[in-house]
Design a protein around this nucleic acid. Structure first.
Lengths: 216, 216
DNA sequence: CGCATAACCTATCAGTGATAACTTATCACT
DNA sequence: AGTGATAAGTTATCACTGATAGGTTATGCG
């Protein structure tokens, strides 16, 4: 916002990657403050302490930068989910926790989530967006699917195509996250209650009713 | 896109509202073609046959124009849903059809849907957006809730707070619509299959298992 | 006719993402 | 130490964006 003429000293020869990371960090911080659309290249550059065109030495376009921010957030998400469940077996509760992790991720990093799943893909620069965001999304989706496969192997899921089931559950999760992000001022019921009930519904839709852990 | 210097003749004294409607129609058509973000005020003005600043005699800002486009789409949605179910009683099938109408609306008018539920609300002009979009959204939500109330009055729903149930179902619907809109290139399973299975899941989550019309 | 004003125009603004062309610091190597 | 290749970053500028100021013109009423 303010001019902030403080210039960061030039990076040594091989260390351009550090500047690149500084840019990503600054962008994420600004996005968290004011949203993706409200942040310009000049603001990012000023926050880092370099000139605006210098950004283009590290990223081909603003869109590429946003994609990179989002991709880093995806790494976070996958790491979080992986760390949490690897030790656990495939149970209804562990499934609920995985879903909960997904929802919390979206609510804690709404701008990354927005770039990943809610933003309009620009008409120009048609490759960069799809290549990286879609790839990151596919990896996260793959993790999720593998989790559901383990449930299926344990005989806990309803019959049906696993990809179909996974996509339906994912859509259900995404709906809640994205609505809470996009319309925070809507008169929602108490958030925890809503999330809990929604997750129960999704779990009921996925898992067989075998007396394992009925919630009612 | 092209210059299109064809100017539309000036409207008579009291008929500024016609021009306003022409602008809305042109904007909707352009949005349907190239997406909301990719259309500039100059393009809209050129399509209508007026100068770009003339838009601001009819709308306070571009955002206000987009909001108006979306509000018109909402009127469509409500009319569609109202026309379809008023004659029917509260049954599982009529509920499924209402949900299906919602999904079809989003898929047929993705840009209106995007403005309504997926767009970041701009930091500036903080009133116009919320006032109109939120109001339109609340009305549509109210319709949906009333439908569910009728199901509850007929003793078909699971126990629990109706607002909570409605918001959860709505989130479930929105998730599928918005993901299909935002990520059309994702390797989805066959669309009809996905929609059908998703709706069954949502219906199961809302309606009691009374042997009324079990789908399995 | 006169004239108030709705409807619309031209000119221009600050701000945007992006590119071209230039400068400068750093490092490997003699 | 000096030289040259080049990574890192600069200034100047582009076309375009949404938006505003202020003037112009056609319309319909009295």
């Amino acid at each position: 916002m303010l001019a902030s003429a403080v210039r960061s000293p030039r990076k040594p020869r091989g260390h351009g990657g550090e500047r690149r990371q500084e840019i990503l960090d600054a962008a994420l911080a600004l996005y968290a403050e004011r949203g993706v659309q409200g942040v310009s290249t000049r603001e990012i550059a000023a926050a880092v302490g370099i000139s605006q065109p210098a950004l283009y030495g590290h990223f081909r376009s603003l869109n590429a930068l946003q994609v990179e921010v989002c991709a880093q957030a995806f790494v976070d998400l996958r790491r979080r989910q992986a760390a949490q469940v690897d030790a656990e077996g495939p149970t209804r509760d562990s499934f609920l926790r995985a879903c909960r992790t997904y929802i919390d991720f979206g609510l804690e990093q709404p701008d990354a989530y927005r770039v990943a799943f809610m933003l309009e893909k620009p008409a120009a620069d048609p490759d960069a967006h799809e290549d990286k965001v879609l790839a990151a999304g596919l990896e996260a989706f793959g993790d999720f699917r593998r989790r559901i496969e383990r449930l299926a192997a344990a005989g806990l899921t309803r019959p049906g195509d696993l990809t179909l089931l996974t996509q339906s559950i994912w859509a259900g999760l995404h709906g809640l996250v994205s609505l809470l992000i996009a319309r925070p001022d809507f008169p929602w019921v108490e958030r925890e209650t809503l999330i809990a009930r929604h997750l129960e519904m999704l779990a009921d839709g996925l898992l067989s009713d075998g007396g394992l852990s009925p919630h009612r």
